[in-house]
Design a protein around this nucleic acid. Structure first.
Lengths: 118, 118
DNA sequence: TTTCACCCTTACCTTTTGGTAGGTTCTATC
DNA sequence: GATAGAACCTACCAAAAGGTAAGGGTGAAA
């Protein structure tokens, strides 16, 4: 690849938190170990298949820790790893920016939807 | 929707910088107004179609400013808007995190590629 | 005239991502 | 037996994102 030294680490971060749901999942898990069904309820609007997929990705990336209590009916919860906590900390300014500019971005995106859709 | 107040603004930020190339583009433009062909060379590996698409998105989101010098042969350059600069600033910690953990993430992702690919 | 570089466009295709619907194993409840 | 809840899997499908190939109008250089 012609890729240079890539001094910008954004691509790395995006590889971890990219996607439609991962930021939300991280947000809802940072308060402590959370069970699968509870995450699903809190995120809202996500299907089981996708949630599991995202969760597995996050676990694979060592951002989340999956704890299976090996009991019946199944009890599993997910928690941030120390590594995941460093990521969440780095995410705070961006989260803050997004919160501050939610209306601005929405106002810009909404009208463009008709243009792009045609 | 069951969606709560969505106190996490990450989805907003992701809507703006999400995608494979936008972070890189932002990075290469932050040093000052940059011409299309120069961005393409600096990013490396991106096709014209995709670069234009990303650039248009960024302009549409008021993150970048497109300046057409209306001369022949065409001269066009892109620069960060003040709004875009606030975004880039919010991106710094994440960029830093990515840079610091590039090897960690790569080491984790690489072997999983064989599992996921099968 | 041909070639090159410029910025951008279009048509077509592949990969990735997200979504729907149904199934599995087990226990508790009705 | 039927129903419900837990966590997860599988098959199929749709949309979005990304990639490839080609063209277009102009002026400078060969």
């Amino acid at each position: 690849m012609d890729r240079m030294d890539t001094p910008c680490g954004l691509d790395v971060a995006l590889a971890v938190i990219g996607g439609k749901w991962k930021p939300l999942i991280l947000f809802h898990v940072q308060s402590g170990p959370t069970r699968f069904s509870e995450i699903r309820r809190r995120v809202g609007g996500i299907s089981e298949k996708v949630l599991i997929q995202q969760l597995r990705d996050l676990v694979e990336m060592k951002v989340l820790l999956r704890r299976d209590h090996h009991c019946v009916p199944p009890v599993v919860d997910y928690a941030l790893t120390p590594f995941g906590e460093t990521l969440v900390k780095a995410l705070v300014p961006l989260c803050d920016w997004g919160t501050a500019n939610r209306d601005v971005v929405s106002a810009i995106k909404a009208p463009s939807a008709t243009e792009r859709g045609g």
